[in-house]
Structures are given as C-alpha cells and as structure tokens.
Design a protein around this nucleic acid. Structure first.
Lengths: 202, 202
DNA sequence: CCTCGCGTGTCACCAAGTGTCAAGGAGGTC
DNA sequence: GACCTCCTTGACACTTGGTGACACGCGAGG
C-alpha cells in the first residue's frame, strides 16, 4: 500500500508527461501570450492530443497556476512546524519566507511565470483563488496555535495580512528587473505588519 | 448633473435593459446555481437573445460581479475625501466603512449576491480580480496622501491590509445569518490593524 | 419617400471543456 | 507464445461561453 514499485513507476510516467506539457505550455504562453495560444497548440507542441492535456490539467489556467501549487502547502507546513511559543508575526514571516525563498531559488523560471500571471487577468484570478484557499488554511493553523476558533476574526485577519505581504512582495519583485532581494522585501513588510499580527484579539 | 435629454434617454433605456438582465440572472443563478444556468436561459428569461446579453455584459460572471462594481470607486472616493491630517488607519477605515455601509443598506439583496460569489469559484475569482484593481487604486490614493511613491511597499501593504479587512468582514457577515453588524465587525478589524496601517515606512 | 443611425436578432464560427468508445501497450498467468 | 487485464491515449461528438458579420426594424430628419 505504501509505495509499490509499480505504482511508483506509473506515477513517474505520469509526472513525465505532466512535465512535458508544462514545459510546452510555459514556453508557448510566455512567448505568444495567454489568449493567443490554444490548448490544441500546447498539446500538439508536446506531441499529444487535446484530450490528454485535460486529463492532466483541469483547465488552461491550471497548467500555469499549478506550477505554484506546492507553495500553499509548503507555507502551511512551515507555519505548523514553527515552535509554539513564537509570536504569530515571526511564525507567519517564516512561513511566507519559506515560500519566497522557494521562488527565489529558481528565480528566472519563477519570474517568467509570475509576470505571466500578474499580466493576464484570467490567470491572476485563478492565482487569487488559490490564495484565498491558502488564507483559510493558514487561518485554521493559526487558530489552532492560538487556541482560538478558526472562524474568528483575528486568525483570518492575520492570515490575510500575511498573504497580502506575500502578494505585494511578488508584485514588487516581478515589476523590477528581478535584482531586488525578495527575502529582504518580505522582512521589511513584516516589520511593518508585526504589531497588527501580534495584537491580542478582543 | 443631467446632460442633454436625448443622451439621457438612450442612457436610461440602456440601464433599463441592463437591469432586466441583471434581475433575470440573479434570480436564476441564486435559484439553480451558477453552472446550472446557461446564458441562453438568462437571456430568454429576460426576453432577449444571447447576443444582446453579451452586448451588456462582458461575461456570465460579469452580470453578478458588476452588481458590486461601484464599490471600488466609492471606496476610493471616500478615501480621497477624508481630511489630509487624518491618520491612514482612520481614513482607510472610513473608506471601507463606506463600502460596508452601502452593502448593509440593501442587506438581503447583497447577502444573496455575496453568498453566491463566495460559493462559486469562478465568481470568487472575478471578485478577487476586482479587488486587486481596487488595491492598486487605493494604494495610489494613499501614496498621494502621504507623499510617497505609488510603487512603494508601504501604500500597497496598507491598501491590501484594509481590503483584507473588508474581505474578512464580508466572509464573516455572509457566513452567519446576517444578523451580525458588519459595521461593528469592520471597526473591530481596524482596531487590530491600525498600528500597522499608521506605521512609518522605512 | 427616403435614408441614416442605432439597437437587436440570426447565423456562423472559434475555443474551452467533457463523455464515450475503441485501439494499443505493459505486465501477469497459464 | 497465447491470453487476459488494467491503464493510457486518441478520435469523435457534443455543450457552452464568447465574438464577428450581416440583415432587419424603427424613429428622426432631409
């Protein structure tokens, strides 16, 4: 049940196809723009049919946005792994930093994708939708840390505020030439926001 | 205020048709769900053709989201009209309050629309896209007030944080039975966030 | 009476997705 | 090697969102 070699093989084959589709898609989309490329084109460029594309990605937006899919999970995991005594501002800062550092790690690739997303309304919308999901998850994690109700105002506000910082940092980073250090931007943002994040909820 | 009567007449006719389409759409969508209603249906219910629908609304999402379209402009106008000496937290609070009060003014209608939006991924995405636009506008206004660069970190953070508050308040309000006072929620949220909004940018 | 402008309906068309079915390859059994 | 089974894929048809082109009807003004 754990990891039979056959399952692992099938899984790797699947991953291979997905990677090829992603590669073809990112290349074409970055070059010609989101609306000017059809799914048929992407599939043909990857050497398969449109139907296969949709077996791997739920939508044309998905192939771009899923490139960032792991970030949300990583952020929540990082937040969950922070020591319990740490103030929320520091814990959230580390969580966002985990994300930002992952992005900065493959800077040129990430920059291309982020610019594509921020410059394409349809993609931006999907990205924000993902972020809304992350916000709920971060809020739940935060509520657990603080012993509060997950539906309360404060954890949601704090999670949303932290994600706003992430958003602004991405925007700032991608609008420049990429030379600005996103980690430093993140720390500056959290220095401003810390008092609100650590406030005692009434 | 009114310009020439002829232009006003055409404008009012247009508005009439748009209202009829909106009415038909909101009725059907709230009743059957977003995906279960086709544009053909909406148009037929309003007594016109699909083509006409798309002459009034850019997309199926638009007919729902445009119902809230004025909010962003109202928020920015309110922010612009606040006295220059007021601290950012108070000015932003009043701006968001203007929005929230407008929503609370037609509570049952707004609640229906907001629940529809928050419960439909496609609509939620479009809504967030609008909000991103508002954020840029609020940041620009704020930068002008504070004499900062509109692309700087601080105005964007403050605008995003204020909108997070708006978002959380809407979410909280719509998830309850509507009896909770959104204005009070807004004030509580801003009480937490104020120190971050009024912080001096470095 | 004509015609000009405007809004609308009709039709054709493209692209995003989805359901369905048949073909083919990888692996296991006799 | 023959057979069977599972899984992936391609081909095709279909629905729906959305757009472009054109024709029709109608009121205003010559």
């Amino acid at each position: 049940m754990t990891t039979t070699p056959t399952a692992s093989l099938a899984e790797r084959k699947r991953q291979l196809v997905a990677d090829e589709l992603t590669r073809a898609a990112l290349g074409l989309l970055a070059q010609k723009g989101f609306d000017a490329v059809t799914v048929d084109e992407i599939a043909a460029c990857a050497g398969m049919s449109k139907r296969t594309f949709f077996r791997y990605f739920a939508s044309k937006e998905d192939v771009v946005v899923q490139f960032l899919a792991g970030l949300g999970a990583g952020m929540r995991a990082e937040l969950a792994s922070r020591p319990a005594g740490e103030p929320p501002s520091a814990a959230l800062r580390h969580a966002v930093r985990a994300c930002v550092d992952a992005c900065a790690g493959q800077a040129e690739r990430t920059l291309r994708v982020v610019r594509l997303i921020l410059g394409t309304p349809a993609l931006h919308a999907r990205f924000l939708e993902h972020q809304a999901q992350w916000r709920d998850e971060l809020a739940a994690e935060l509520a657990a840390r603080l012993g509060l109700d997950a539906a309360a105002l404060h954890p949601r506000l704090a999670a949303g505020t932290a994600l706003t910082a992430f958003d602004v940092v991405l925007q700032q980073w991608s609008s420049g030439d990429g030379s600005e250090d996103p980690a430093a931007l993140t720390d500056r943002a959290f220095a401003t926001l810390a008092p609100a994040l650590d406030a005692t909820p009434r």
